[in-house]
């Protein structure tokens, strides 16, 4: 259970890495994410694995499992909670199933750009969210780049009016469903793995994701438009099991923390680069990038900000903190 993680699980923690029982324990971490090897999650975790091995002189190693091999984000988070998996790179939305505060980022138009989102998330706001973790058996290590989710598919979205005739797939998050519904769209929730076929067959006309994931998932093959709707910027966090964290010596903890910061920078840089490259690739692939007029969309969803924040524990506080940091 979550609460017990910080205290009485100490006795188990030696098992986390198959340790030898000596004072200088060795660890073999298992880490995972749901994206492919080109994405920042993978680049970041692989960098972390290399840094850990290098800085620890080989006493800490880490396997990285990509493409949901260890399960979806909520499933991995559950495994991290009880220490059977050690590290996960996950979006804030998945964490909100365990810690509602993290749902704050599902509010539409919270940020205006990736740069803004990253700056705020890596400051006070992110610290506040990381503080919620230990109580639930987690330790926050670092923030990768926030990703800009845009709506793509067979539907061209030029303005708010186009939502009224659209059938959209949403991830399973009330914040997303509510936003799309408020805009007048028909919303279908389905697993991401079904979206390709659903777009191909016309079951839905659109889904949303960041540019590099849109291409990485091959959804360009079944999409005509990539609409720059910029509704959500979702932070991606690298999170460790608290059991694992507490099994480390203070020196090892410092080392892991430093390595995670450095790895997150490497990962974020990869995101920034792939973001730019994605649009060049889209042009080559014949996907039309639509500069959606956001004014009407922002206007129509304005009231959601406070409504949704009110439904999140300390949501208003977090919202104000975000606004004051802009």
């Amino acid at each position: 259970g979550g609460e017990s993680g910080s205290t009485d699980n100490q006795s188990d923690s030696g098992n986390n890495g198959g340790g030898s029982g000596d004072s200088e324990q060795t660890f073999k971490f298992t880490s995972g994410h749901t994206t492919s090897v080109e994405n920042q999650q993978h680049v970041g975790l692989v960098a972390l694995a290399e840094l850990l091995e290098e800085k620890s002189g080989g006493s800490i190693t880490m396997d990285v499992f990509e493409n949901s091999q260890l399960g979806s984000e909520p499933v991995m988070l559950q495994a991290v909670q009880d220490g059977s998996q050690h590290i996960v790179a996950t979006s804030s939305t998945s964490v909100s199933n365990f810690i509602p505060e993290w749902g704050i980022f599902d509010i539409p138009f919270l940020f205006e750009s990736t740069e803004q989102a990253d700056e705020i998330v890596r400051g006070e706001v992110g610290d506040r969210l990381f503080e919620t973790l230990p109580e639930h058996g987690y330790k926050g290590l670092a923030w990768l780049s926030s990703i800009e989710r845009n709506i793509y598919g067979t539907k061209k979205i030029e303005s708010v009016d186009d939502f009224k005739t659209a059938t959209l797939r949403s991830i399973e998050a009330p914040g997303f469903v509510e936003t799309f519904t408020t805009l007048g769209a028909q919303v279908v929730t389905m697993p991401g793995s079904e979206l390709y076929t659903a777009l191909q067959q016309g079951v839905v006309e659109g889904g949303d994701n960041s540019p590099e994931l849109f291409l990485g998932l091959g959804h360009d093959e079944v999409s005509d438009y990539y609409n720059l709707t910029k509704i959500h910027y979702l932070p991606i966090a690298i999170i460790m099991s608290l059991d694992t964290w507490e099994a480390l010596t203070p020196e090892q903890q410092d080392m892991v923390m430093a390595a995670a910061q450095e790895a997150a920078e490497t990962g974020s840089a990869a995101y920034a680069q792939s973001y730019e490259e994605s649009f060049i690739e889209m042009e080559e692939l014949g996907v039309e990038v639509v500069n959606t007029d956001l004014t009407g969309i922002v206007e129509a969803t304005k009231h959601l900000k406070e409504e949704m924040a009110n439904n999140i524990p300390s949501g208003m506080e977090l919202l104000e903190l975000i606004e004051s940091n802009k």
């Binding site: 188990d12 098992n15 198959g18 399960g71 979806s72 909520p74 499933v75 559950q78 495994a79 009880d82 220490g83 059977s84 389905m190 697993p191 079904e194």
Partner: peptide, 19 residues
Amino acid sequence: DGQSINIVGQKVFAGIDKF
């Protein structure tokens, strides 16, 4: 292997919790 079997339940549920 000396680990917690809690993971069994998690993975089993995740395995069938599919539309």
